Every structure is written in structure tokens, then in C-alpha cells.
Amino acid sequence: MRYDPQECSTMAELRSRIDRIDGELVDLLALRAAHIDRAVQLKPGEGIPARAEDRVAQVIDNVRALARDKALDPDLAEELWRILIEWSIRREQRTID
């Protein structure tokens, strides 16, 4: 859902929207984590290690481009995704490597 911050006329309304967006972000992060769990199941059969530097670079490039398209600071997006990526790799390494 798209939210226009200009539609908020009070800080209470704005904060409520931010809280709703935070909930949606957590939902998406949980869905991403579930996909990482599936990767743990698939990677060994395909001979793919937990850390694939070419994939890391591809994900970072994609996220930076998406951020630029949405007028989000690409450096912020990259920093956040590097945290996600490293968490994901550690999660995979416990099983794969």
C-alpha cells in the first residue's frame, strides 16, 4: 500500500502511519528470512556455498538501483542490506558449511 505522508495532518497520525509501515517491513523481513531458510535446503543440492560473493554484489547493485529509483539514499539501502546479507549468510553457514 502506498502512503502519502502529506496526507497526515497531525504528528499522532504520522506516527500511526510509521508504526503501520514498520509492521509491514517486519512482515517482509520475516518473509525474506523464510526464503533464506529455503535457500539452506536448496543450496547444498546445487553445490552453492553459503557465501557467494558474486550474488552478494548482485544483490547490493540491485538494491542501490532500486533505492535510487525511489529517491532513497543508496548508501543507506546498501548499509541495511549488508546487515541483512551477513545475517543471512551466518544463518546459512550453520547448516551448509
Score class of each variant (00 low, 15 high):
97 D>E: 05
89 I>F: 13
7 E>W: 15
68 R>L: 15
75 D>K: 13
51 R>Q: 08
58 Q>D: 04
85 I>M: 12
74 P>G: 00
6 Q>V: 14
60 I>Y: 01
62 N>R: 09
95 T>D: 03
66 L>C: 08
91 R>W: 03
66 L>I: 13
64 R>L: 14
10 T>S: 10
97 D>F: 01
1 M>A: 12
7 E>N: 12
22 D>M: 15
71 A>V: 10
6 Q>K: 15
46 E>V: 04
1 M>F: 14
5 P>N: 05
17 R>T: 04
86 E>M: 15
5 P>H: 14
66 L>Q: 10
91 R>P: 02
27 D>R: 13
58 Q>I: 04
56 V>P: 00
11 M>F: 09
37 D>W: 05
52 A>Y: 00
44 P>M: 04
21 I>W: 05
17 R>S: 13
34 A>E: 08
9 S>E: 01
21 I>E: 01
42 L>M: 03
73 D>T: 01
61 D>L: 11
28 L>R: 04
81 W>D: 04
52 A>S: 05
33 A>E: 02
53 E>G: 07
69 D>Y: 03
81 W>L: 10
38 R>N: 14
91 R>K: 15
54 D>M: 15
33 A>H: 06
47 G>D: 10
17 R>Y: 04
92 E>R: 01
20 R>H: 11
46 E>Q: 01
34 A>Q: 10
54 D>T: 07
78 E>M: 05
67 A>E: 02
2 R>V: 07
53 E>I: 07
95 T>C: 15
14 L>D: 13
12 A>W: 12
83 I>N: 02
67 A>I: 06
4 D>I: 13
8 C>A: 15
80 L>A: 02
27 D>N: 15
26 V>T: 03
17 R>L: 09
92 E>G: 01
64 R>E: 12
30 A>Q: 11
84 L>H: 01
27 D>V: 14
79 E>L: 14
72 L>F: 15
79 E>D: 07
85 I>P: 09
49 P>F: 08
86 E>R: 10
87 W>F: 06
7 E>F: 01
70 K>F: 10
47 G>K: 09
57 A>Y: 06
4 D>T: 14
19 D>I: 12
77 A>T: 01
95 T>V: 12
71 A>Y: 12
75 D>V: 14
25 L>W: 02
8 C>D: 07
93 Q>D: 04
74 P>D: 02
48 I>E: 00
60 I>F: 02
12 A>I: 10
24 E>K: 12
30 A>Y: 04
84 L>P: 04
69 D>G: 10
48 I>H: 05
17 R>M: 06
81 W>F: 14
5 P>R: 00
13 E>T: 05
4 D>L: 05
70 K>S: 08
